[in-house]
Design a protein around this nucleic acid. Sequence first.
DNA 1: ACTTGTAGTGAGTATTCACTAACCAAAAGA
DNA 2: TCTTTTGGTTAGTGAATACTCACTACAAGT
Lengths: 195, 195
Amino acid sequence: MNITDRQQEIMDTAIAIIAEEGIQKLTTKALSRRIGISEPALYRHFENKLAILVAILEHFSQWSRIVLWEIVESDRSPEDKIRELFRRHAVRFVESPATSAVLFSEEIFKNHPELVQSMTGIMSAAEGFVRHILEEGIAAGRLRADVPLEHLAMVTLGALRLLVTRWRLNDYGFDLQAESDRLAGSVVAMVAVSP
Amino acid sequence: MNITDRQQEIMDTAIAIIAEEGIQKLTTKALSRRIGISEPALYRHFENKLAILVAILEHFSQWSRIVLWEIVESDRSPEDKIRELFRRHAVRFVESPATSAVLFSEEIFKNHPELVQSMTGIMSAAEGFVRHILEEGIAAGRLRADVPLEHLAMVTLGALRLLVTRWRLNDYGFDLQAESDRLAGSVVAMVAVSP
DNA sequence: ACTTGTAGTGAGTATTCACTAACCAAAAGA
DNA sequence: TCTTTTGGTTAGTGAATACTCACTACAAGT
């Protein structure tokens, strides 16, 4: 079941609408109009509206898994892996700001349990990878062992999420990549053992 | 313009609906039905639906200001103030879980700029108070000065937000107060100067 | 006693929602 | 060449949406 060009176009447009106007404005009318086709034409490519959202989340889920896997498997130091985690996310969000509106705001899918599950799946996968990185760092004696692993992960991911959320609420109005690098440095400093 | 009992009931019910079913299910029909009055009766107490949401945010804004002010003004140590910040929020959310769904998910109001502004106002007020606490701690030499103040604030608030978000997505299924206390301890450890 | 304000009602309104039926042109396969 | 598949159209559907209308029971003032 490969994704056709038209399906990708529909997904991209849907993401753009969510990012710019919120999920409530994602209607079949708005979506078809923006693409330049009729409403029924959408149903030639997706069974229903929910299927579009499911496809979008599946798409993000795959991206997330690939990126995190690459970072974990690389032969960087744990500290560098954390910095890379921030960097890769920032690059992606700057390339496609709409992405951040979907990936970091689980609320928007609240109405359908199917989507909530998909979203929590993405979140806990990310958590798992980050824990893995941190565990490695603790074992190597480079990251602090005086606070629970889960809290290291929560601080790391919480900071990244909050920065991105701010960026979005700020209408993408500052240099996310630069800010993300700076924040990553600080997070690493706080997560590492004191020198 | 004091809030009447009925207005408060409408606001509380609206918050409950948002928490349980998401903002999309907050309809005049669902709201009136749950209270046990007719739809038109709502309009005896609020001009329109938007006015209900505005009143809710105003309510949160006041609570937030009062709590943060009390913490800042108390004569605790900076570390204790941070712990207190976590504790007070946890207490509030446990008392009224619905609260967290509104206070920590700015996305849900995206459709109306008026509400977004109100929300960002609440957020940046909180940020300001937390910065104040941290600044105090740095000046006293108790909190680390090797990372920028704004990053200390981002890590602190980001961790708190993420914990609460998890709790909510987890259907309020763990002891937030206990977890929040534990997390606060770790955050303080990471934000404080190494002993 | 009479007037007025409050808080409610049932029955609508126009509009929007996701989605369907029926049809059509053109490309692809046989 | 004939038939099927693909991707599109116009014109609808019933249900849901926020909100209004005309009306009423009733309590409070004066």
